[in-house]
Each structure stands twice: as structure tokens, then as C-alpha cells.
């Protein structure tokens, strides 16, 4: 009798349709908002994004998530982005106010995917223009860290303004690299040469006076390095169950 019962149960289980997982994407990290699987972002950028996204989500429920992956495993960027967006559940379940910035390193592709609720303030055309203006010029020079941070600021500002977010909002740098580049490199050139000239002069002067090695020049320290613990102190964040219908735009670089 019990055997028949068990068989019957098994039979019922067989009738329950299994959900089909079409595509495998990366899993959300415990930080949720920052998932640097391609390992191209600095800890400063990561903690900046983490702090801002957490503050924004706490105040407005809108979630901005950054994901970098080494490659897409043969999937198309768009399908990968939509699947990942839904798996993470970015944004509030009711408001669907999630935003995903996804970079695939090997494919050299970037996609901004917008949840239903943010499509009004971030139509596809705008997300494309933001990428062109704030991110792609950096990515073309392999400067992923700065490009992602600058693009994040641009999108963050847009969402924060819409929700009248009460907190720190930084404006992104409008990109005019082609014009600034020559000037910047010239400036660096003069600065480096001028400074090293000055250094040589000081050193030479010092050693002549027999006081070599006592110069109090110190580089690095607080300006470079440091803050390596970055976003690791955060944890336990998760998506609000937001949904995306595939809105947004993609770019190659």
C-alpha cells in the first residue's frame, strides 16, 4: 500500500513542469551592487559605487548594479544582460526601478540595461548617448576603471535627480579627450621634465654639500595604495525582485 502511495507521489512530481534555465550567468556577490568578475575596477571605484548605490537604494528603492565579466560564454550580450538582470532582481519588485551596467571584457562590449520603471527617464537613445559621451572613449584606451566610474556617475546623477535624492551626487566628466589629450600630455611632459630637473638639481646640490639622502621627499603613501579593503566590509545586499523587458542600449569598443 505504501509503495503504491510513493509511486503515486512520484507520478505527481513528474507532472510538475520544471522551469527551464536557458542561460548561465554569474551569481550576485554579497555586495550585490558591485560584481567585478573581470577584475578591472580599482577598490576606490568599487567602494564609491557601493556607497552610492546603497545610499540611493535605501532612500529611493532604485538599484544601480555594476557587473563586469571576463566573457559571455558564447551568449549574446543582450540576452546575457536581461537574464542576469532578472536573476539578480535589480530594482524594486513593484517599481522595477533597476539599472544594470554590464561590461564584457573579452568581447569588448558594454550594455546598459534599464528596468521598466526607469525607461521613462532613461530611454534607449539616452543610455546610448551617455555611453558614447562618458564611457566608451575611456574603454577604447583600456581605461575601464575610469570609464565605468564616470559612466556610473552619469547614470547615478540622472536617477538621483529624478528621485530628488538627498545626498552626494557627483557630475560626470564630459568627454572631449581628443582635444584635451594633446594639451594634457604636453602638460605632463613639461611637468615631468621640469620636476625631474628640479630633483636632479636638489640631489646634486645636496650631495655636493655632503648631505645626500636626507631630502624629505616622499611619494605614494596616502595618495596611492591604501583603502584596499574597499567594499569588502559590506555584505548581505540583494535585489528587490525588479524586472527588465530588455530596454537599454549596447556598445562595442
Amino acid at each position: 500500500m505504501r509503495k503504491i502511495g510513493l509511486f503515486f507521489l512520484f507520478f505527481i512530481f513528474c507532472l510538475i513542469p520544471r522551469s527551464v534555465l536557458a542561460l548561465d550567468t554569474v551569481e550576485p556577490t554579497t555586495n550585490f551592487y558591485i560584481n567585478d568578475y573581470a577584475d578591472i575596477l580599482s577598490s576606490e571605484t568599487e567602494s564609491y559605487i557601493m556607497e552610492h548605490s546603497v545610499a540611493l537604494a535605501n532612500q529611493t528603492t532604485a538599484q544601480i548594479v555594476v557587473v563586469t565579466v571576463p566573457n559571455l560564454d558564447g551568449a549574446s550580450l543582450e540576452e546575457y544582460a536581461t537574464t542576469l538582470f532578472r536573476k539578480f532582481g535589480i530594482g524594486d519588485k513593484e517599481e522595477n526601478n533597476g539599472l544594470l551596467l554590464l561590461l564584457a571584457l573579452e568581447e569588448r562590449q558594454m550594455r546598459v540595461e534599464v528596468g521598466y520603471g526607469l525607461e521613462g527617464i532613461l530611454p534607449d537613445g539616452k543610455t546610448g548617448r551617455f555611453q558614447d559621451d562618458y564611457m566608451i572613449p575611456y574603454f577604447k584606451e583600456d581605461n575601464f576603471d575610469e570609464g565605468m566610474l564616470n559612466g556610473y556617475k552619469a547614470f547615478f546623477q540622472e536617477v538621483a535627480t529624478y528621485y530628488e535624492f538627498d545626498g552626494e551626487v557627483d557630475a560626470p566628466v564630459e568627454n572631449e579627450m581628443s582635444e584635451n589629450d594633446t594639451f594634457a600630455s604636453l602638460f605632463t611632459f613639461i611637468w615631468v621634465f621640469g620636476f625631474s630637473g628640479f630633483m636632479i638639481y636638489i640631489l646634486a646640490h645636496n650631495s655636493r654639500n655632503g648631505r645626500g639622502g636626507r631630502g624629505g621627499f616622499y611619494f605614494g603613501g596616502p595618495f596611492f595604495g591604501g583603502r584596499s579593503s574597499g567594499g569588502s566590509s559590506f555584505g548581505g545586499f540583494s535585489g528587490g525582485g525588479g524586472f527588465s523587458g530588455g530596454g537599454g542600449s549596447s556598445r562595442g569598443f
Binding site: T82, G125, K126, T127, G128, D132, G246, G248, S249, S250
Partner: peptide, 23 residues
């Protein structure tokens, strides 16, 4: 032209939305 780039993005986005909705 800015107008064309924007329209292309909207079109591409819509095509992707269709693909998603179709799936």
C-alpha cells in the same frame, strides 16, 4: 547625426525588447 544615432538606439532597444518578449 545625433538624431539618427538616437533613433538607431531606440530601434535596437525595441528589437531587443521584442526578442525578450518573444522568449
Amino acid at each position: 547625426s545625433e538624431n539618427f544615432i538616437q533613433l538607431s538606439d531606440e530601434l535596437a532597444g525595441t528589437e531587443n525588447r521584442i526578442a525578450t518578449a518573444r522568449r
